[in-house]
Nucleic acid binder design. Structure first.
Lengths: 212, 212
DNA sequence: TTGGAATATTTACATTGTTAAGTAAATTTG
DNA sequence: CAAATTTACTTAACAATGTAAATATTCCAA
């Protein structure tokens, strides 16, 4: 079936073309600039051709959302060498903040916008990429508990808390809710990192053993 | 100037009519159902009449966003009688979670969507409602520090952290990012409250003074 | 009464996602 | 190889949207 195979490959090539074009619009001109017509223009096909490769616009969003998770995992390559689980977790949080601030559009798609999730629940799927990411956090949290850095408890519960915290910071920041709070844009990420430090200090129980 | 006054009043009446219609659509059919044409239909005017009272759609969103803050402050009436600042802060957090889960559309407008903020920065305004709400949190945080419940430090910094935490919970929940994590929808709010408990326990330094 | 301001509507435009119908080329089939 | 069919794509069109310009109506003061 060499022919069917080549066909398949070509189909995927155009799919990729569409995604590349969407990405380009996404990154260079922001979210609202992704229109079927502009995508078509970029890939030099007619608008309706896009629908031969994606059922609707939301399906494109979902694909981009997936790409976002790939990009985020690149940010986490620096975790492998860190032995101390609490420091690893801290670094993980910093990476998360940095990713969100550097790629706010991706972040929106991954963690804020409704469209990708709607598409996903249509397909009966279960947000594999998101759960995988959360799974890595859970491992680290478990490790922290075993080694006595965090109070023993439900690692899921604690993972949810940690995730919520950093997500809260990023999503408030990229949706302009901290502008009055942190007027100087350059101070945004540092302020968020400081908040993370405070948080990590508070949940670390090793400190409590030291006398005041 | 009795006449000009009545005129003014009538103008405001129609403005109010428009906002009421928007609210109705908002609450009963969700965000995307707010269209100028449907608003016009409800108030029995032509679509373009709406533009005599609001410059554009975003200005309506901004007004609704303001109403959301009013509604949220209703949720906080139960705080007045609480003496202990840490418990007050805890309750404040619970109220925040409950408000977000009960009025997700309002919450989106207030803390997630870009439109109201865009309109605001056009007007050179400074998110008074948001800052006021954060101000009340800051007071409580300061109170907690003075009374020895929280480690002394920058109250703004800590307020940001607390706010980010609860915002993270709510925004993940209402944007369907916790569905796999908490499959049973009824467990959503309880799980979030549990996370808040964990958080409050961790930042409360009075506990540290007790021996393990 | 009349002229002008305030208020409202009609018409229109550009943009959007998406569907239906049509076409030309490639492929399969007899 | 010729006919039939499938594939890949385009053209045309629809319905909904936000919004602007032109037009009509209402209303009050001179």
């Amino acid at each position: 079936m060499g022919i069917a195979e080549r066909k398949e490959k070509q189909k995927n090539e155009i799919r990729q073309l569409i995604l590349d074009a969407s990405m380009k619009l996404f990154v260079e001109e922001g979210f609202d600039s992704i229109t079927i017509r502009r995508i078509a223009e970029l890939i030099e096909y007619s608008p309706t051709t896009v629908y031969l490769y994606f059922k609707d616009k939301d399906e494109i969003f979902y694909a981009l959302h997936d790409l976002g998770f790939e990009k985020m995992s690149e940010f986490n390559h620096n975790l492998d060498t860190i032995q101390n689980p609490l420091i690893r977790m801290h670094k993980m949080g910093e990476n998360y903040l940095r990713f969100g601030m550097e790629y706010p559009e991706f972040y929106s798609l991954m963690f804020i916008m409704g469209e990708p999730m709607k598409k996903m629940s249509e397909l009966g799927c279960d947000w594999k990429v998101g759960d995988a990411a959360l799974g890595r956090l859970k491992e680290t949290v478990t490790d922290c508990m075993e080694k006595g850095y965090l109070a023993k408890g439900d690692p899921y519960q604690v993972s949810l808390a940690v995730w919520s915290f950093v997500h809260g910071l990023v999503s408030l920041a990229i949706r302009q809710r901290l502008e009055k709070f942190v007027p100087d844009e350059k101070m945004l990420l540092p302020t968020m990192e400081q908040a993370l430090n405070w948080f990590m200090n508070n949940i670390d129980i090793t400190e409590r053993k030291r006398p005041a």
